[in-house]
Design a protein around this nucleic acid. Sequence first.
RNA 1: GCGGGUGUAGCUCAAUCGGUUAGAGCGCCAGUUUGUGGUACUGGAGGUCGUGGGUUCGAUUCCCAUCACUCGCCCCA
Length: 418
Amino acid sequence: MTTIQPIRGTHDLLPQEFRKHALVTDVARNVAAAYGYAEMATPIMEFKEIFKRTLGDASDIVNKEMYEIIDRGDAPIVLRPEGTAGVARAVISNGLTQSLPLKYFYAGPMFRYERPQKGRLRQLHQIGIELFGVQDPIGDVEVLSIAYDTLKELGLMNHITLEINTLGDEESRKTYRRHLVTYLKDHHAHLSPESQQRLERNPLRILDTKDEGDKKILKEAPPLAESLTPYSLEMFEKVKEGLELLGIPYKLNPHLVRGLDYYCHTAFEFTTTELGSQGAVLAGGRYDGLMETMGGPSIPGVGWAGGIDRIAMMLKENDLKPLKRPLAIVPMDESIDMKGLVLAKLLQKHGHRVEMTYGGNLSKRLKKATKINACYALILGEKEISSDSVTLKDLESGEQTFIPQIQVVDVLKSKGVL
RNA sequence: GCGGGUGUAGCUCAAUCGGUUAGAGCGCCAGUUUGUGGUACUGGAGGUCGUGGGUUCGAUUCCCAUCACUCGCCCCA
């Protein structure tokens, strides 16, 4: 079609789509605020080092999947691929660690150099929350509860499942990794090529494989639960107990793992089958090691991020509140337009949407008033102007009344419009 | 990064087994209606058939490349 296109994997959010995004963000913001989480924003650009440190070299992420920016400084800069590292950096930069806990909500665009698919964009939008300084699993539960309330309030929990798992503490994971690798090495030849690679790089992620052959092999694999330390087990029990007390349904998924090292204990995903293979709509977990990895004090953290684009895709048109019908100002001639604008301003002061109709004769302008779904048209012609009046036309019934302009506000109030 | 599918009007889609002016519905504009919208009727605009190259007397149709979307894989912060 047209040769002028947006950058691959980026989208324009036209008003209708934008309203869905705004709804998701507003609901999450309000829920988070109710739990005492304050909104903040960090820059969209950060030094590459910020992400390099936290993400490590374990995956393609650092090398392949970040947008690097060329600027005149020496230090490489990237567009942020996710929100947590930036918030953690801000906490350290601003010396906010003096009074814990810290509770934050954020929303904004993230950038990932990936092959686009449905629900998988190069500029994506996320909402997220972070809780710093709470070691007790009550923090995990609170954070999960905020996610649940948000998706519930959006009316989506009928189509979404909460899956949780524990990765245990570092000791648990080390032990388990050893057991898993030992087991899988015996089956090395039968693993998929991808999993054979993962066995070297990041064996725990094999648990998350999509390959049927791998899945069969994993059925006999030693379960992670057996490697958990008593402390890790207790943590997880408390999380599950908390969810039950709050009436939040969940499914245990022992194969749910996170790709990066700083994650520990609780890992969770809210997933749906409605969006193809990009099923995770909101995900998070505990990251007690993150702050230290970034060079800050050792402060535990737990949080999540949700994909606004994906969540918005699950919303139906009628999930949006219908817009309030506007009033239409209909001057019958261009020479009267200014007077119309004055009348519009008067009514807009009452907080109502009042739109001018531009161009054309009365017929044209009424047509435009109908198109914007106005409830009333305020018609201004020679007759009206000469007597400081206005013709108020009910666009539903077609009835119209000729009233003095000074009475317009009262009449509209009596009709329940203002 | 790897493999499959798709690309015709603003939108949803036809058609051409390679052949003259590429169609419809919706939407848009105008008129019937120079002080009355919604419904109806009439008319109109809008396409280098995603882009570039090749084969051919002739390509929207066949071939190649490229771009975008899409499905899956890798990765998943």
